[in-house]
Design a binder for these strands. Structure first.
Lengths: 112, 112
DNA sequence: TGCACTAAGTTCCAAATAAGAACTTATATG
DNA sequence: CATATAAGTTCTTATTTGGAACTTAGTGCA
């Protein structure tokens, strides 16, 4: 079974996962909450390939979680912002953060 | 970059995702909270292939989120139960559930 | 005895997805 | 003109997944 087939599952958790149940998608959302909004920022911050960033942003916009806004007309440049629907995803990310802080302490510090 | 490389990321959300940031893993956890505990139950309930169920259960046990317990000795039969660490993941699933209920209503009822 | 059945996996191959790097497009800047 | 920037796209190769069949160890009839 493919994961997008979960979109009309009886379970609201499954339906949510069919949209955002993938690590890169959730990392991009985290970045949005941290104030990032541009393609290159997402690519660098998450470590996902540009291909993936492109695909995930497209899905998130289609789902109404992010909106794509032009911040420059010449040259055309876009940024991505959380919609209200997206903002309301905060509790889930906070729950992930709390769980990670408590149960997954960093062993090796990231190379500064 | 591979997602398991996120395990020592500075961000606790990323570290959490390196472990459970995948749709089937989260669906299996949902099932555990719903009281399911056996291999075949997970496979049927989530719709994931047995291959995936096997892999994800292994990871979850290694991570200390589930524990594998024998419920029968002859023949050897096992079940999977949430550890305390796993139990504490509840808030994240509840956040997913709430968001899904609010923002992703079911269109077509699942064939009863 | 032997045949079917169950639970918990494993194995196999084809198909889908992801990684990584290079390329494109439109414009601005020196 | 040459270089730089932002936001993607394209390409090839590698990894992961899907789906079905097979395995293992034991139980329960008939």
């Amino acid at each position: 079974m493919k994961w997008t087939d979960l979109d009309d599952n009886w379970c609201p958790v499954a339906r949510t996962l069919s949209l955002v149940g993938d690590r890169w998608t959730l990392l991009i959302l985290r970045d949005c909450f941290l104030g990032l909004s541009r393609f290159d920022q997402f690519a660098e911050s998450t470590g996902a390939t540009r291909h993936i960033v492109s695909d995930r942003l497209k899905r998130l916009v289609e789902a109404g979680i992010l909106e794509k806004l032009a911040y420059s007309d010449r040259p055309k440049r876009y940024e991505y912002k959380l919609t209200e629907k997206g903002q309301e995803f905060a509790p889930a990310l906070i729950a992930f953060k709390d769980w990670g802080k408590k149960h997954l302490p960093v062993r090796r510090p990231t190379q500064a």
